[in-house]
Simulated assay, not measured.
Amino acid sequence: MTAEPLVTVQGAGLPVVVLRPGETLLFGRAPQASPAPGRVVLALPDCAPHVSRDLGELVVGTGTVTLRWLGAGEAQLSSLFDAPGGARRVTMTRSMTALLDDGENQLMVLLGRQDPDGRLTDRLLAIDIVRPRPDEPGRPAAPGGSDATTEGPRLERFGRDWFVALALTEPWLTGQDDYPRPPSNREIHERILHWRGHAWNLHRPQRVDEAIRTISALAFGVRNDPYGSEHPGRLQNVRFMVARRAAELRLVTQADLAEVERAARDRDPSP
C-alpha cells in the first residue's frame, strides 16, 4: 500500500504550511474563501496588481496531490527529483489540473511579485511531497498518535526559525521539564544573540511570534495547529504547547544545543 503524502509548502516571506490527506490549500492575492476545517487559505504578500485573487488550489488526497490552477496568469510547474523519467516542466494556465510528483516541486508564478520600487519579479513556491512510513525499520514511534510524524518537513538547519525553535525548547532540551513558563521573546532574542553574535531582526517581538507560528504549523500540522483555532487561557499556554511539541518531535535536539554553545565559546573564549 502506498504511504499517504505529507506536503510542505514554502516561499519567501510566507509561513510554512504543512498539509495532510483530506486537506486543501487555496492561495492567491486575496483568496475569496474563508479558512475552514481541512481548508487553509493563504494570501500571498507583495502580489502584483494583476495577480488573481484565487491563483491555485492544492488538494491532498490519500494517494495523490493535485494542483488546480485558477488564475488568469500563467505559472511554471517543475518537478525536480522523483518524477517518472526525470524532471518535467509544465506551463499552468487557467482550469489546468496537474498531479504532483513525490519529492520537490517548484511553482513559479510568472511576474507575480511586485517590489517596493514597482518592479515585477517571479514568485517561487516550493511544494515538497514525502510519504513517511511509521513502520519503517529504525524509525521511532511518533509521539501523540498516528497523526504525528518524526520524519518529513524539517526546519532549515542554522536558519532563523531553527534558532528560534532551539531557544524556545531549551528548557526541555536541558531537562527543566518543570520550567514555569516558555521563554519570552526578549529571552529568545538574547539567547540567539549569544549563540550567533547577531540575531537577524528578532529584536522585533513580532518577528519572534512569526517564527513560533511557523514552528507550530510544522510541529502540529495545519489540522491541529493551536494557532489556527481558539484556545482558552493565555497565548503563553499555546507557546508552551509548541515548545514541548517541537522538543518531542526533535525539530531541534540536545546535540544541536551543545553545538551552538560550543560555537559561542569558540567565538568568545573569555570566561
Rank of each mutant, 00 (worst) to 15 (best):
V130H: 00
A87W: 04
L218C: 01
F158T: 12
G63W: 05
V51R: 08
R262N: 07
D225F: 02
F158S: 08
V260W: 02
R123S: 12
L58T: 01
D46K: 13
M241Y: 11
A141N: 05
P269Y: 10
D266R: 15
A36F: 12
Q10M: 09
W195C: 01
V60K: 01
T8V: 11
P84N: 05
W172P: 03
R20S: 08
D147I: 15
D266C: 10
L99V: 11
P143K: 03
L173I: 06
D178H: 02
A263E: 13
R244T: 08
A36P: 13
E170L: 06
A263I: 11
R250S: 15
R139A: 07
L168M: 12
M92Y: 02
P137H: 01
G13A: 10
R245Q: 09
P180S: 00
L44N: 05
A12D: 13
W69I: 05
T91G: 10
P21M: 02
G11F: 01
V60Q: 02
G197I: 15
R204F: 14
S270I: 14
P31S: 04
V252E: 00
G38W: 05
P35R: 01
R157P: 00
E210N: 04
R133V: 08
P182W: 07
A211I: 09
H189L: 07
A263H: 11
L55D: 01
A3E: 14
R20G: 03
V109Q: 06
V260F: 02
D102P: 03
G152V: 01
V59S: 09
R160G: 05
P84G: 02
L124Q: 11
G73R: 01
